[in-house]
């Protein structure tokens, strides 16, 4: 099996603010590696951190391990050059940057999924059912998620064996199956509707950046969706 990109788009919190969209995606169809990363607002440079995480995942250089993460942190530190920063930027840099990582690869007839933080993937149908991972209830988005950090100490909890096990799953794929990777505002919107057929149909119909923008702004205006950077990556399974 292989996954094909049907749509990949993002809407920033505010129009005209693309430069500070802290959601990042990276994809490589030839290698069958796909990633979404959502940089946390309270971070020094979460857009850069999210981009590095997503790129490292897609390049295959980042196993979810301390060693793999250390390489990305080192790259982030080199890029930020903390010795050159003002006191306030240095203080913010020392607080760290935080981001989710949702990564998908294909192995044979299955998708291997790693989800650290509150970015979510919806699969339909998987074994005849609609599945979501890592969350299945909208309330789960109200908890403070564990995020990947540039601050090494903040990552300790992620490498607890039971936590790490809960970040990985494997879904069988068959032709026509769809994976929708999304950041938290969209994930919460979807699970509040129980990932109903009608709400899934709305997301499946999005094909252009304009479609996504109109949908997101409409839901935000009605109060149905939290105002946040919002990203959707639509993948479709087909025979290799």
């Amino acid at each position: 099996m292989r996954l094909r990109i049907v749509f990949n788009g993002s809407v920033p919190k505010d129009d005209g603010a693309d430069a500070i969209n802290e959601d990042q995606t990276a994809t490589d169809e030839s290698r069958q590696r796909f990633a979404v990363s959502d940089g946390a607002s309270e971070s020094y440079d979460s857009a850069r951190w999210a981009r590095l995480l997503a790129n490292a995942w897609v390049a295959g250089g980042m196993a979810v391990s301390r060693q793999g993460l250390e390489q990305v942190i080192s790259e982030y530190e080199r890029a930020c050059d903390p010795s050159s920063l003002s006191w306030s930027k240095r203080g913010a840099f020392d607080r760290g940057s935080f981001a989710t990582l949702l990564g998908v690869t294909v192995r044979g007839a299955a998708a291997r999924i790693v989800a650290m933080g509150d970015s979510m993937v919806l699969g339909l149908p998987i074994d005849g059912a609609t599945l979501s991972f890592p969350y299945s209830l909208s309330d789960e988005f109200d908890r403070r998620p564990l995020l990947l950090s540039t601050s090494r100490d903040a990552n300790n909890a992620l490498f607890d064996r039971s936590v790490a096990r809960g970040c990985i799953t494997r879904w069988p794929l068959h032709p026509g199956a769809v994976l929708l990777l999304m950041t938290d505002a969209l994930g919460q919107w979807l699970l509040r509707r129980g990932a109903s057929a009608s709400s899934c149909a709305v997301l499946l119909a999005i094909r252009t950046p304009e479609d996504l923008h109109a949908f997101v702004r409409s839901e935000q205006a009605s109060g149905a969706m939290r105002r946040d950077d919002t990203t959707l990556l639509h993948l479709s399974a087909e025979e290799a």
Partner: peptide, 14 residues
């Protein structure tokens, strides 16, 4: 104040 400022500072400034 230091905490407040560093919490509100990003790569593009405070």
């Amino acid at each position: 104040l230091y905490n407040l400022i560093t919490r509100c500072t990003k790569a593009d400034g405070c």
